Computed example of a mutant assay.
Amino acid sequence: MDVVTQWIRTTWTNRSRGGPPAARREAFPLTEEGTPLLHEIDMSEQDDFNPISSVRRELPNPDRVAIHEAGRLLSIELRPEPGTAPARWQRGSMVLLRPGQWLRWRIDYRITHAGGETYRLDTLNLAYRPDAAAAAFAGVPARFLDERTQLS
């Protein structure tokens, strides 16, 4: 499938909550061409928000992003991570993209564990049949979904 995906996950605790590093980047340059391409970037308070990235020739996890081609359109269903708070009850179910279009989806989470609470911001950039992978996320996305909410 002719899809380029970049998934940026930023994780922090109350120590840096609301600080600039927690929401530092929305897109990173891509250095590889071809599809499918999955570029994952993890940044955490624990690693001083230094990006750790990996690139693979595959589609995103279908439990998180369901992708189907329907004629000349790409149908994308974005699924919040299970077991995290707050629950997202009122939300759209599907996004459609035409060739050459891309979307940006932002969603945040609060994760409670024995050591306290951790917060995470996910930014998913997904392009359908981009002219060039390296320029897939330049400019303004055709679709922008912002599901960030109050995490307290």
Rank of each mutant, 00 (worst) to 15 (best):
R64K: 11
D146E: 03
G116N: 07
D122L: 02
V3F: 09
T123W: 03
V65M: 08
R57P: 01
E117K: 13
S44V: 00
L145R: 12
A127C: 03
S44Y: 01
P36Y: 12
P51N: 00
S152K: 14
L37P: 02
P80L: 00
I107M: 06
L96H: 13
L96M: 14
R56F: 10
N125K: 09
N14C: 05
E81F: 12
P86Y: 01
E69S: 10
Y109A: 02
I52D: 14
G100I: 02
T35Y: 11
W12D: 00
G139W: 06
G34E: 02
R64W: 08
L97M: 04
T5G: 05
V140M: 13
A70Y: 08
P130K: 10
R64T: 07
S53R: 10
F49C: 00
R88Y: 14
P36V: 10
H39P: 01
F137R: 12
A27F: 04
E33T: 13
A134E: 13
D2V: 02
L38S: 09
R57D: 07
L38C: 06
W89H: 12
I76G: 08
N125P: 04
T84F: 02
L38H: 11
P60Y: 08
A22E: 00
R15F: 10
S44R: 06
W89Y: 11
I41N: 01
L59M: 12
F144R: 14
R79N: 11
N50A: 15
P51A: 00
G92T: 11
R57G: 09
G83C: 05
L38I: 06
P80F: 00
R64N: 09
L151W: 07
T10G: 04
S93P: 02
T13N: 03
L59S: 05
R110Q: 09
P80N: 01
V95K: 05
R64P: 00
V65P: 04
L97S: 02
Y119Q: 01
T123V: 15
I107C: 05
N125F: 06
L96D: 04
A133W: 11
T31Q: 13
L30Q: 06
P62R: 04
H113R: 10
I107N: 04
V95H: 06
P82C: 03
A133I: 01
L59Q: 09
D146Q: 03
D48N: 15
P141N: 11
R17W: 12
G83A: 09
A134W: 05
D48K: 11
A87Y: 11
G115R: 14
H39F: 13
N61A: 12
T118P: 00
W102N: 03
T118V: 04
Q90C: 10
R91W: 05
G34K: 04
L97E: 02
W12F: 05
P99N: 10
W102T: 00
L74T: 06
S75L: 15
L97T: 02
N50V: 15
R91V: 12
D63T: 11
E117W: 10
L124Y: 03
E81M: 13
E26K: 07
V65Q: 07
G18W: 08
L30H: 07
R148C: 09
I67S: 12
